[in-house]
Every structure is written in structure tokens, then in C-alpha cells.
Write a protein that binds this DNA or RNA. Structure first.
Lengths: 342, 342
DNA sequence: CCCAGGTAAGACAACGTTGTCCCCAGTACA
DNA sequence: TGTACTGGGGACAACGTTGTCTTACCTGGG
């Protein structure tokens, strides 16, 4: 075994120097060919390309990025849980936009942990991502300010940041819930139970605020069943429904703050073979199959992810403008199946 | 404005050189502090750390990786569609394992396109990912051989590769379907309709093979309704069910090759208020709410993703062994609700 | 025939970090 | 007091690529 480029030596990757030697040209010419610089003589370029495929050369983008100081063609996405369809849909939409810009997406889950979120952000900056899309966990995002000042763009999605100014792409939680409650009220319902998980969360408090707007409009300030709080476990949502129904003054309609809560409610109603005017935030793929009619607030999750990614790339290409704030609209849609009649 | 490190000059990031100057130590000492080398005098380390946070220093991992030649702490995952819960669950599980190894995950969707898959693989190798997890699209993966020979590990998940040898993590499609069909046969069903999408796919042909095993065992070689092929659109699966039911010899039981097909079948049955012995591959979150009883083949998708990632990291830490092949077991479970009786 | 002008290729340095080596100061021991 | 040793810090080179500058060559016109 000599130290000549063998092409088969395991572990050792051919570099541009190896290609240059094999093709009998200078390193720089190889670089030019790799970057498709047009001022390379055709025969040389051909020889270089031959040597490249002969040796199985692959450009080391780590080195190229370091030297050129240009973009790494990588953006980071920090969500709460990739296994949750809402977040994975956002990730998929963002990746589709990134693909248009020949950019890869590093997706990381913070798991609702502010400390973890921060760690992830710093890790991604050390990897020199070109930009960041973040679903904030509710903690403080002021740790981002230094990096934002240095020109790395960040877009917040689903919830706004606190402690720094940046682009945001949000759902119209408030209007959606207001419209939904208006509908229930227009149907004559006066006693509406509301089940949410937590109020410390931006999303849920916006939804409740929208609900309150509608209730206040109708002259009802909260209602006896308003804003009962439970965990985000469908089972405990079912328990909450049971408690409401077993109370001496059961509500005639029920608003579920998200689709997990709705599931728990539907299961409980199905178990009791009870019926109620059911309404919820979040549409989802299997909602049409629910064994109970329900009016849900729908929205285009893909559009949300797409919007955030497009805002990010726009800012990458034209930095400096003031942060902007886009909102994805919501709509009402009837789901579930009426299975009682025959 | 001087050219002194200002800490506020936008666009210019402080480097170790800047930190060294600010702390009055050598570049190398800064490097040692950043890497937590213990042989640095406490007072110097303290000064360096102070300068780091003063300047807002973040190590450039691109440069560190280039120089050290060590891992990039990044692995690639190529799936078919991140918006599909099956794949996003795999991605989430893989990311959880990666987190244990302080590694980030670049997830990219091939969209069932072999050419795109190949592009993505090459792009990820140019980024020098430490390893790759791939759900192959069914094309040829021999383009991976060079890189595998160089020692970059790859694990195939859900389907085996063709054209190269590598670790695989698969579902036990064959046994699962065989057990499911055995159950239908044991219940006395002799005429079982089977709806699949395509047979060019490894997964579906394994499932059909398992079904055939059970049928042959029972002395039925295929059956009149076996292996009718339709697209993966739930609507067209519904049409297929309609055609079977309207035929002069309707089956008494129906096997759906995946959960999308099952959805189409359930919708069609609900529309007709018809009932059938229903069975399918794939469990899913909302299966318990289906308005028709169904026995499904379940499996632990997270375990599949976890397994693949663990195989990858094991190979990263001990390369050279023969490729291994793990299979995730399946089980039968009854889903859906019986809504007829009252 | 010489020189200007342009084009293509190469030499060299640099990106920001880490690996290697060396040196210097401090200590222990003869 | 001199020598051997050790611990800690710094100088320098290197990772693989690209930016800049220079050089060599070729063409065409005076």
C-alpha cells in the first residue's frame, strides 16, 4: 500500500487537492469546476469532473461554509413536540419552503421546557444556522437579542416572543373562538361550559379572551361554567365533562379549548350516550368520523408553517426592516357524524 | 468608530482571537477554556469566561468541526413525508435518541421520489452528517456504497435497501397480517376482500404475502376477492368497497392494507349503514373512535424510530460489524365502537 | 515585430478553530 | 546550587475550502 490516492482507503475522503493531483490541475481550478465558474477551459473542466467521479469526491460543505462565510443553507426549527401533528405539519410546511431555497431544516423539540428551548437555540447558533423559527415555550426569549442584533433572523410561530422583538406568524385564536361562541349564543345557548388546559399559555388565554368577548357582547359575563381548568390529558377532560354534567345545573353547550380536550369530551359523551351542543378549537383529520356532531374552529396549519418560513427567507434576503406580524385566519366548520337517527 | 472589538458592531461575530485579546491570554487558552480542558489556571479561566460573556462569544462549530475532523453531531433522516404521522412519529423518536447523544437531526422529505432521495442523501453527506437514517423510496440505493465503504453508517427503516448492505429496522408486516387473517379465518370467514394500494412497495407486498400464507394454510388460494389494487386515496378505497359490496358475491370480511384504506372503507360502510367483519393494518390515535368495529394490526412506531436511531449510534461507536436486521413485532387489537345496539 | 488587452490558471492567504510541539517557570532532589 | 522533572501556556501549523492577486499565455492591432 502506497500513500497514493487509492480511492479505496477507508476513512480517508478525497479532497480537492486529491482531485487536482489526479487531474493534473491546480487546487483552485478544481474549486472553480466545483462551483461551476464558467471561465474554465472545457477540456480541463472535463478532466476535473472525470477525476471527481473517479475518486468519488464530495465537496466538504463544512469547509466551504467556513471559508466563504456565506450561508450554511440550514435553518433551525424549534417546536414543542415533533410527534404532535400540529407541529409536524408546521415542520413539513417549513421544510417545503426551505426546499425552494435549497436549504435544510434542523428540527428540534423543546418539550415545553424553556431551558431546553434556550439550549437548543444556542446550539443552533453555534452551528451557524442562517435563521430560526421558534414556537416559544412561554419563557423569556431575551437571550435571543444579541444574535438578532447580529443580523440572524428569527420568526416566532404560534406564540409571540417575550423579551425581544421579531417577526411573528400567529393563528387568529381570539377571533376564531369569538365567532364560535357567537354561533352558540345565536342558537340560544346561554349556559356554555368551557374546558381549557392551562391559562399560562398564550394560545389558550387568547382563545378564552375571544370567548369572553362573545359572552360579554351577549350580556353574559363569564357564565357559571366558564373557564374551568384541567390538564391537557383527554382523560381528565372527560372527567371535567362528567363533573359538569353531574352538577345540578348542567350546561347546554360545551366549548373545548383544543382537540385533545374535545376527544376526552366525546369519549365521555359516548360512554354516557349523552348529547350536547359541542364546539371546539382545532380541526383534525379524523374529526369527520367523531361519533357526535361538533362545530370546530379550523385553520390552515400548513399555511402557518409556510408563512413563518417565507417570512424567514424574506428577512434573510432583505434584513433590517421592522418586525412584522401576520395572522392566519380561522373559520367554522361542522364535523362529526349524526348517528342517532335511523 | 475604531476597528477595536466593539461588541456591538452588527454582522461581526467575536472570535476566539477577540476573546483572547480581551482577556489578555493566548488564543489557545481560550480554546482550552471553551473545551473545558482542566489544566487551565483558575484565574485565567475566569478571565476568559468573563471576556466570553462580555463579548457574547459563541464558538463557531463549523470551524471546530473542520479542524478537529470529529463528528458534526448531526445525523440525517430521510423520510417520505413529515406531515404523515407515521413518519413524524419516527422522526420524533429518532430525535429523542439523538438528544441523548447531543446530536441534532436534519429531517428531509423525499416525497416518494427516488431522485429526490438521492439528492438529499448526497446533500447530507456534503454537510458531513455523522450518519443517516433512510426510509427508502423503493429505488436503488447503490449510490450509498461509496459512502458506506468510507465508514459513514446508514440505517434503513421501514423498508430494506436495494443495491447495498446496511442495517435495517423493519416492521413485522408479514407476521402481523398473517395473524390477522388467521383470526378472520378462525371465525369462519372464507370470502375475504383485500384492498391494498400498490404492490410495487415492499411494505404492501409483505403484508399481502402474510395474508396469502394464512389463506394457503386454510386451503384457500387467494380467494375471489384477494388483492384488488387501488390508489392510496381513501376515496378510491371507498369506491373499491362499494364495488365489492355491489358484486353478486360480496365478501363477509374485509382486510384493508393500511389505515388510509380503512378510513375510506369505514366511510363507505357508514354511508351505507352496512356492516362487515373489518380488519386492517395500522393502528392510529383515533381508531378507538371509528364508528365501526375493526381489528387492526398495531405496532410501536416510536419503538421503530428509536430502534433505528439506536442502531445508528451503536454503529457510530463501533463500526465494522456485519449489518444487522431488527424487526419490530406487531399485535392484534380491537378498535372502533359498536354503535348499533341500544 | 512589439505591445496592449483580455482571459484562464495558479500561488497564496485566509476563514475560526484544534492538534502538536516547545518553552518557561516552579519545584524537588541530589 | 545545579539538574531533572512537571504543569501550564503559547507559537505555529493544519483542517478543506474560497477570495484575491498575480502570472502566463494568447490574440489582435499598430
Amino acid at each position: 500500500m502506497t500513500d497514493q490516492a487509492d480511492g479505496q482507503a477507508p476513512g480517508r475522503r478525497p479532497t480537492m487537492v486529491d482531485v487536482a493531483r489526479a487531474a493534473g490541475v491546480s487546487l483552485k481550478t478544481v474549486s472553480r469546476v466545483a462551483n461551476e465558474v464558467p471561465t474554465v477551459r472545457t477540456d480541463l473542466a472535463e478532466r476535473v469532473r472525470a477525476a471527481m467521479s473517479e475518486l468519488g469526491f464530495q465537496r466538504n460543505n463544512v469547509a466551504a461554509n467556513l471559508r466563504s462565510g456565506r450561508t450554511t443553507a440550514t435553518i433551525g426549527l424549534i417546536i414543542r413536540d415533533l410527534a404532535n401533528p400540529f407541529y409536524s405539519t408546521i415542520a413539513a410546511a417549513a421544510a417545503t419552503v426551505a426546499e425552494r431555497f435549497d436549504t435544510q431544516l434542523i428540527t428540534a423539540s423543546s418539550g415545553w421546557d424553556p431551558a431546553r428551548e434556550r439550549e437548543l437555540v444556542l446550539d443552533l447558533f453555534e452551528r451557524r444556522v442562517d435563521g430560526l423559527i421558534v414556537v416559544p415555550t412561554g419563557g423569556d426569549q431575551s437571550y435571543l437579542r444579541t444574535e438578532l442584533d447580529r443580523g440572524t433572523p428569527a420568526v416566532f410561530i404560534d406564540s409571540p416572543p417575550s423579551g425581544c422583538r421579531a417577526d411573528t406568524a400567529l393563528l387568529d385564536n381570539r377571533t376564531g373562538t369569538r365567532d364560535l361562541l357567537r354561533r352558540l349564543l345565536a342558537e340560544g345557548h346561554r349556559d356554555i361550559g368551557m374546558i381549557t388546559d392551562t391559562l399560562n399559555d398564550y394560545t389558550m388565554s387568547e382563545r378564552l379572551a375571544g370567548a369572553r368577548e362573545a359572552l360579554v357582547e351577549a350580556g353574559i359575563d363569564g357564565g357559571r361554567h366558564a373557564a374551568r381548568l384541567y390538564s391537557d390529558n383527554p382523560r381528565s377532560a372527560g372527567d371535567a365533562v362528567a363533573a359538569m354534567l353531574d352538577a345540578p345545573d348542567p350546561p347546554s353547550a360545551l366549548f373545548c379549548g383544543n382537540n385533545r380536550i374535545l376527544l376526552g369530551a366525546v369519549e365521555e359523551l359516548a360512554r354516557r350516550r349523552a348529547r350536547l351542543r359541542l364546539a371546539a378549537f382545532d380541526d383534525f383529520e379524523f374529526a369527520p368520523l367523531l361519533p357526535h356532531p361538533v362545530t370546530v374552529v379550523g385553520y390552515d396549519t400548513r399555511a402557518l408553517g409556510r408563512l413563518a418560513a417565507e417570512m424567514l427567507f424574506q428577512r434573510l434576503n432583505s434584513p433590517g426592516a421592522e418586525p412584522s406580524n401576520y395572522v392566519i385566519p380561522t373559520y367554522l366548520v361542522d364535523r362529526g357524524m349524526e348517528l342517532t337517527g335511523d
